[in-house]
């Protein structure tokens, strides 16, 4: 199986590549080239850095046009998931619009970033995770609950921990940093590859 990790030059994709190796992925390509994404069995988009900068980079490589048309299993992680949404308050910028969801800033009275281990409650119709599992989060913005929400987390308010629509999945937590359950989650994503 060949997995592409989208790297638009904003930092750390090393951890994700290591995690994929740990769950047995042999061929990993770290890339920003559209052709390379199209040739892969699965694509992972680990957003890092600032939303506006990340969107700028996606547009620069025309990935904003390519990504929504991809047919293979696609996983956006953290900011990656947020950029798959319609709009984010971070830098007040429009995302890829794959999920019809808005991304908002956590309210003022909370400790922000929402940093650490929290539970994800799966919807009754998802098989991506099984029960109320622990995952590692680190973020200051959150995606609202929507019809695409298949996993939700409570940090004073409920937000989307996992979004799923067709071949597109987004998760707010970092599976590559979420111990054994994170690796299990990566495996269930990779199982979607036919």
């Amino acid at each position: 199986m060949k997995v592409a990790i989208i790297d638009y030059g904003a930092g750390n994709v090393t951890s994700l590549a290591f995690a994929l190796k740990r769950v047995g992925v042999e061929s990993i390509s770290i890339t920003f080239e559209a052709d390379e994404l199209l040739r892969s069995d699965a694509v992972i988009f680990p957003g890092v850095g600032h939303a506006a900068f990340a969107m700028h980079q996606l547009k620069k490589y025309q990935l904003d046009k390519v990504i929504p048309e991809l047919k293979q299993p696609f996983l956006g992680i953290c900011l990656g998931m947020q950029l798959m949404c319609e709009h984010t308050e971070e830098g007040n910028c429009d995302g890829l619009g794959i999920f019809n969801v808005k991304v908002k800033q956590f309210p003022d009275h909370l400790k922000v970033p929402h940093m650490g281990w929290n539970t994800v409650v799966p919807s009754t119709d998802t098989r991506l995770i099984e029960s109320d599992d622990w995952f590692y989060f680190i973020h200051s913005y959150y995606a609202e609950i929507s019809i695409h929400t298949v996993g939700k987390t409570d940090y004073m308010l409920d937000f989307s921990a996992i979004l799923h629509k067709d071949n597109f999945i987004g998760c707010q937590f970092h599976p590559e940093k979420s111990a054994v359950l994170g690796e299990k989650y990566l495996k269930s994503f990779l199982n979607l590859v036919e």
Binding site: G116, N118, I145, K152, D154, M156
Partner: peptide, 19 residues
């Protein structure tokens, strides 16, 4: 959205579920 998620028990010992 009701019914799509199991009800989880709220924790009396913690303001949030963040560990």
């Amino acid at each position: 959205m009701k019914g799509k998620f199991k009800q989880i028990q709220s924790l009396k010992y913690s303001v949030t579920m963040l560990a």
